[in-house]
Design a protein around this nucleic acid. Structure first.
Length: 787
DNA sequence: ATGCACGTACTTTTT
DNA sequence: GTACGTGCAT
């Protein structure tokens, strides 16, 4: 085979056009990181230490000062957002050269390499990418087909295990060879079948993008030679989050020139549950014994008080690299810990605090962020903010391309692009409803599996379909015609938006949504419109890029060899779907933008962000640290340490002020429980903390809300003073059936009550006022009056 | 084939 | 408390 690879670019950069001093304004370790050129480099970049600045300046420095051709630099991130931000910042530093750098997510970079020469290891150039939804559907099908009990083997858990295997570069055979339990044997079998089905659909899942890219480099001498020769520099962001597959891939790419630069912070590793392996960053110096190690510990974000508090917490972790952030901003406001009676009161306190800080000069609501451990915490905040008429925006809830209606339309596009994508076809086979029921779909799928054909091929097989009965055949025929028409149109039509509109039109999809008389029907219709807009925007981008001056010449050459002679429209469609799969959220998606509002999000989605004022809500045992890390089956020191890192991430988001709140009672999963303040609160040096509410040192015993605070062996400085460690023997004041009155909620009936009285006594009251409904109240706290 | 009712189970989320 | 999945009845 003739080599598919062009000669490598030796062209000099255009750096002389930009005069800005790349080293100006950098501190000395940052400079060292920027100017280090040869050999492996490990940068421990603490929160707010100017990581992105260092990384972008380093790349710019390589291009401008060392004349490294931009096309021979590979810079990898985890999210599209990070890649985009980096590219933008680089454009300011090196201009158009920025567009020639190989920069993007692991998945996007791997996908690109596989599109270019996946054929060397037998991967169809036109492979499609299965997202989580696709893989879940596929897995359910497989389990059904194999008659495996889904309650004993939940599809999502199996997928998680498979993902785990792939992240560690273990094949189905590997899993099988070490299988020692029935569960593992089933797993190996299902994994094997899963891969077969993916292959049949010409599909790769997200993990395959990495795994197959590794396989490409391992198995194709030619590819390995080219790519490792090509990249003079490999840079990896958020290195604490890499998994084995990602690390191996990067290692192979960097093996020739050995210029591998990794940046990360082990203290911010919060994604172990999705395959991240902190040990990789901790062991980097073992993998590369000649690595230069640089610590960025000067923080440009927070006050020293905040950093000290954060350090108090994180330093409790054993498995970490010793380090400590510092700042020139001495002192700062003390942190506040506020204990509330329940989640509603907690939310109320936060709104009031926001309002009072606003009066003190924080005019921008965007200065405030409320960070929580789980999404379920958001409800009381939404309610409290709504009532107080303070705008609150929830970040990171449902993503645009995850919406059902959008996925339906994407599934149509997938089928048009690749009719053998049986998962996509199964999704839309009866959407909108065309009278093809589950039983029929089952039969069709069984036929497909049996004859080793795709679902589409079976549908085309008139004989097979007729065998299922006249009624079924009559329903399948229009579908067959529909798909044929759509495919034909796709050959002619060049724009994705036209195709989307055609799908919506021919399937009468909007009418289908209107008929669904649900609350979200209107939203869904709007999302369909939004999807058309997204497609239009994509088309516009493609038109702009018609003159492909962006990519390196050698990349164009590579991609040319990769281009099958497909109709323009189909090619476009492929690009569009790849962008949908790999860049989860559309620009115009939710479009919340810069609305002036308080931000509410999970600690996970807060990583990388900063806010002047941060509220950490739900600082309780069981929430942060989460119950699963504390008391769950897989609870352990490592899990607890990840929770602690989560807390650390939260604290280090704050620039000026931190408020930590907890609720003495919390209703989670329909159950109201007494809670204990988070152990992490005790890890913050007490001189940095001011206590309020139930956390106040002098809180009256009337605030004592939970006997569980007196749990033996657990001591907390956040327990109100005056609370004896022994439980009270007082008789309860209320019992089931009593009528009572509350000044705000009105009259009600006691439907449930604590068995014992005293400080911990509580009652569950059904209020006559239907708006209030049922409430659990602490007798000692709530002003209740017997009627 | 479709719709309703009941039971169960449940972090975190990017690609 | 909700959301989802299964099972039964229409």
């Amino acid at each position: 085979m003739a080599t598919p690879f062009p000669a490598l670019n030796q062209r000099r950069g255009l750096g002389h056009l930009f005069n800005m001093d790349l080293l100006a304004g950098l501190n000395s370790p940052q400079r060292e990181a920027v100017t280090h050129v040869k050999g492996p480099l490990l940068i421990f970049a603490g929160a707010g230490s100017g990581k992105t600045r260092t990384l972008t300046h380093r790349i710019a420095y390589l291009i401008r000062e060392h004349r490294v051709p931009p096309g021979r630099i590979l810079a990898v991130t985890f999210t599209n957002k990070a890649a985009k931000e980096m590219r933008e910042r680089l454009t300011h530093l090196v201009g158009n050269d920025a567009s020639r750098i190989w920069m993007g997510t692991f998945h996007a970079m791997c996908a690109q390499m596989l599109r270019i020469n996946g054929d060397l290891i037998g991967i169809d150039r036109r492979f499609v990418i299965f997202d989580n939804d696709d893989t879940l559907r596929l897995m359910k099908e497989i389990l059904k087909e194999a008659d495996i009990d889904t309650s004993r083997y939940p599809p999502s858990r199996i997928l998680h295990r498979i993902s785990d295997a792939k992240n560690n570069l273990r094949s189905p055979q590997d899993v099988e060879s070490v299988a020692s339990s029935p569960y593992q044997r089933v797993l190996a079998r299902v994994y094997t079948r899963y891969q077969e089905r993916l292959q049949a659909a010409h599909a790769l899942d997200f993990d395959d993008l990495l795994g197959e890219a590794v396989r490409l480099l391992r198995e194709s001498e030619e590819a390995r030679h080219y790519w490792s020769e090509r990249f003079l520099h490999v840079l990896i962001d958020e290195f604490q989050d890499v998994n084995m597959a990602q690390f191996r891939w990067a290692q192979m790419l960097a093996e020739k020139h050995r210029n591998i630069c990794v940046v990360g912070d082990d203290d911010q590793s919060i994604y172990a549950w999705r395959g991240a392996n902190v040990k990789i960053i901790l062991d980097f110096e073992v993998s590369y014994q000649d690595a230069t190690v640089i610590h960025l510990e000067q923080n440009y974000r927070s006050t020293q008080n905040i950093l000290d508090a954060a350090h108090g917490v994180i330093s409790q972790n054993i498995g970490r690299k010793a380090k400590r952030l510092w700042t020139e901003v001495e002192g700062g406001a003390t942190l506040t810990v506020h204990g509330a009676i329940n989640a509603q009161e907690e939310a109320l306190w936060v709104v009031r605090k926001v309002q009072s800080l606003q009066r003190l000069g924080h005019e921008h609501l965007s200065d405030f962020a409320i960070l929580c451990r789980v999404n379920a915490q958001s409800r009381p905040f939404e309610e409290a903010f709504m009532r107080a008429r303070v705008p609150l925006k929830l970040v990171g809830t449902q993503r645009f391309y995850d919406r059902k209606e959008v996925k339906d339309l994407v599934a149509y596009l997938k089928v048009i692009y690749n009719a053998n994508d049986s998962v996509a076809l199964a999704r839309i086979i009866n959407v909108p409803g065309r009278g093809i029921g589950d039983v029929t779909i089952q039969k069709l799928q069984w036929l497909a599996a049996e004859s080793n054909r795709s679902l589409y091929e079976v549908i085309l097989d008139a004989e097979a379909v007729n065998a299922l009965g006249r009624a079924v055949a009559a329903k399948i025929a229009p579908l067959r015609n529909l798909l044929k028409t759509l495919q034909e149109e796709a050959q002619v039509n060049n724009t994705v938006a036209d195709l989307v509109r055609l799908v919506i039109d021919r399937t009468d999809y909007l009418e289908h949504l209107r008929r669904e008389r649900t609350v979200d029907s209107i939203d869904r219709q709007a999302n369909v419109q939004e999807f058309i807009n997204a497609a239009e925007q994509f088309d516009m981008r493609m038109d702009e890029m018609e003159e492909p001056e962006a990519a390196d010449e050698e990349d164009q050459e590579l991609l040319r060899t990769g281009d099958a002679d497909l109709p323009e429209g189909i090619k476009r469609l492929g690009t569009f779907m790849e962008s949908v799969a790999l860049e989860g959220d559309a620009e115009g998606g939710t479009g919340a933008g810069s609305n002036e509002a308080v931000t509410l999000m999970t600690l996970h989605s807060a990583k990388g962000l900063e806010f002047p004022i941060v509220f950490l809500a739900g600082m309780e045992q069981g929430l942060l640290p989460h119950a699963r890390a504390l008391w769950g089956e897989q609870a352990g020191e490592e899990e607890l340490e990840e929770e602690r890192r989560l807390c650390y991430v939260g604290l280090t988001r704050a620039q000026q002020q931190v408020f930590l709140t907890f609720a003495a009672q919390r209703t989670l999963q329909g159950r109201t429980e007494s809670t204990q303040p988070s152990q992490f609160l005790d890890e913050i040096p007490s001189h940095l903390v001011e206590r309020a509410g139930l956390a106040a040192a002098n809180a009256p015993s009337a605030y004592d809300v939970a006997t569980s605070w007196n749990r033996p062996g657990v001591s907390s400085t956040f327990r109100p003073a005056g609370v004896a460690a022994s439980s009270s023997a007082e008789p309860p004041k209320f019992s089931i059936g009593d009528r009572l009155r509350h000044p705000t909620f009105g009259e009600g009936l006691v439907v449930n009550a604590s068995p014992s009285g005293g400080a911990g006594e509580w009652v569950e009251v059904a209020f006559l006022n239907s708006e209030t409904g049922k409430k659990k109240l602490v007798v000692a706290y709530a002003p209740l009056e017997k009627v």
